[in-house]
Amino acid sequence: MSPGARLVAVLGVLALVLLLVGAAALFVGSAALSPGAVLAALTGRTGARSIESVVTLSIRLPRIAVAALAGGALAVAGVAFQALTRNPLAEPSVLGVSGGAAFGVVIGQSVGLGFGVLGAAGLTAFAFAGAVVAAGAVYLVAGAGRLSVQTLLLAGVIVGLFFASAITVVISFVDVNRLGGVIHWLLGNLATIPPASLGLFALTAAAGLALVLPHARELNLLALGEEAAQQLGVDAERLKLQIFAGAALLTASVVAFAGPIGFVGLIVPHALRLLLGPDNRLLVPAAFVGGGIFLLAADTVARSIVAPAELSVGVITSFCGAPFFVWLLRTRYRALL
């Protein structure tokens, strides 16, 4: 099979799975609608103002879209950071980049940004700035040049802890009453967002993907080392900058709209590597769809397991991700440590 045909087949299968999981998620929820009622709402056989229609089309559907987008964005950011740092355990939350973006959002909120699509755009900008600062800090803490796996992870943990403390400080200065919301948000929390904001989210995530996807082949060459990649015709400095910007933008958009959801960028790329191999030209697009599948499934669990209350989806991803991280460390990457 030619690589192009393989990519199409892989994306076809993943898209089908995403569709099935998405369809299943439409029928699950604490409003206890019958499958018939959901179908009626989907086919427009109930009025637009019926409960079935509002719950299915205005609450569940946008949330499914947010989950799929956020999962895809985080998984692509994971693949990008792993290729960029040549570190298989790199990931937005492990590297502290999510923490930096979250700090950006908290700052943005505390200066009054919040509602509507303009507020969301502002928060995304703050999140992006925070992500860039955090990634830069990791780079400085770990020391420039070729970073060892441990140093980079340690630097990521340090930077992540720093921003977590900084967030606590800001929150304690702003307003006690906001704490409840922020704590849930900091765990990573998917929500039904209005169509305009959803559109903005899709746009920023697409921009991030567009910065990474066209360079997937060069990311493969980067595995040879920076100098060898340059000797093969890769403009390594420009490539690193673009991938860095793309991964930071993907992370920032998710943090701005859903909070710092952890470990998606670790679980999904590695699961896909086991299935598809190391080729980033397959991994990047597959991660975008596969990440959507994973986060959508996790969110469906999060919103139905304790209904009518809800869990933060970040709780589910961390419960899956932390053991997975340990398993990766102890089996596949033992030699690196």
Binding site: G29, S30, A31, A32, L33, I51, V54, V55, I59, R60, G112, G114, F115, G116, V174, D175, N177, R178, H184, A191, T192, R303, A307, P308, A309, E310
Partner: peptide, 29 residues
């Protein structure tokens, strides 16, 4: 408790009260 939005919608409230928390948090969404 944290509450699912759709559960709230399903219970068809006749009045919705949005609490705002002092001036510093801005308007109500």
């Amino acid at each position: 408790p944290r509450f699912a939005l759709e559960a709230a919608v399903a219970r068809a409230p006749e009045v919705i009260l949005l609490a705002n928390h002092s001036a510093s948090t801005g308007g109500i969404d």
